[in-house]
């Protein structure tokens, strides 16, 4: 609120109305509906539904299938987050150091941001294709017979690689901007205090980058959980079958293919809770960040 704000009574309401109504209709209503229908069992023939309490949830946690998907999602998320953060950090540190060609490197390392996940997945299919995909051949060279869409681990590997490739640019951009916001003189003071570049990085640069890294951690977890849908969907070629799936993909499969409205809604609600936990976590980290500056 500005000190000298306007005091017109109706204009702000009119200004807020479009945003609020869109949110009400397309956010709160569906979210509420998801919570509501997670407690109901949909008649398979579409004739009404009956209240079943927490049955949908207990069914989920009891299902081997769901636990397997959840387990995969956790591993997938950890791998994608760790690898894309680590690679991006390395590249950002180097890009921050070089002077010659700095701009070209920056462009080359960030442009993939603009590629849609399913397009990345499609490129993945071409590269991991059985028989003549270049990466398949490369793995074959080491005696690894790579079978995308057939072998569970192989498909998972392809998903991780493509998802990491797609996520490096965002992490790179944030790490680079984080590095550039560290005062030059602090780096120089460190040069005078410590002659080892590696230990300087871990003592000074990395702690000062920690707020960025924490923030990116949340962003990456969210990415791996939700935004990789397009990658997963293309790499399994729309055939879930025996392939590794993420939780979001399962919401989609159960809800739209299996017509299990209640089960799918319960899964949605579980994801909502997960995101809420992440957000609370993120806020606590932001509070910590204030101490630095």
């Amino acid at each position: 609120m500005k000190r000298a704000g306007f005091s017109n009574p109706w204009l702000p309401v009119a200004l807020l109305l479009p945003q609020l109504s869109i949110i009400a209709i397309f956010f709160y209503w569906p979210a509420g509906w998801a919570i509501h229908s997670s407690f109901f069992l949909q008649d398979p023939f579409g004739f009404g539904s009956s209240f079943v309490g927490l049955d949908n949830y207990t069914d989920l946690f009891g299902a081997v299938e769901y636990r397997k998907v959840a387990g995969f999602t956790v591993i997938f998320t950890l791998l994608v987050t760790f690898l894309s953060l680590a690679i991006a950090l390395l590249l950002a540190v180097k890009a921050d150091k070089v002077i010659r060609g700095a701009r070209s490197y920056r462009t080359l390392l960030m442009w993939v941001y603009a590629i849609a996940p399913p397009v990345a997945g499609f490129l993945g299919i071409m590269f991991f294709q059985q028989g003549n995909g270049p990466i398949t051949q490369f793995f074959g060279f080491f005696g690894w017979e790579f079978m995308l869409g057939v072998n569970y681990t192989d498909t998972a590997t392809a998903m991780v690689i493509v998802s990491v490739w797609k996520q490096i640019p965002v992490n790179f951009i944030f790490f680079l901007s984080g590095l550039q916001s560290i005062p030059k003189s602090v780096q120089e003071a460190a040069v005078i205090d410590n002659n080892s570049g590696t230990s300087r990085f871990w003592d000074i640069t990395f702690p000062l980058l920690a707020p960025t890294a924490f923030f990116l951690l949340i962003i990456n977890i969210t990415y791996a959980l939700f935004d990789t849908f397009g990658v997963v969907d293309t790499l399994v070629k729309g055939e879930p079958g025996n392939n590794p799936l993420t939780l979001v993909y399962k919401v989609y499969v159960d809800g739209f293919r299996g017509n299990d409205l209640g089960g799918s809604s319960a899964q949605s609600v579980i994801l909502m809770v997960l995101v809420l936990i992440l957000t609370v976590f993120q806020f606590r980290l932001i509070e910590r960040r204030i101490h630095y500056t």
């Binding site: 209709i25 397309f26 569906p30 998801a34 935004d227 919401v251 809800g255 799918s264 994801l271 995101v275």
Partner: peptide
Amino acid sequence: TLLLPLEVRILPSYEV
């Protein structure tokens, strides 16, 4: 609304 991406409420949104 920042808390919940479209993906987690995809089915009910579709229904609406």
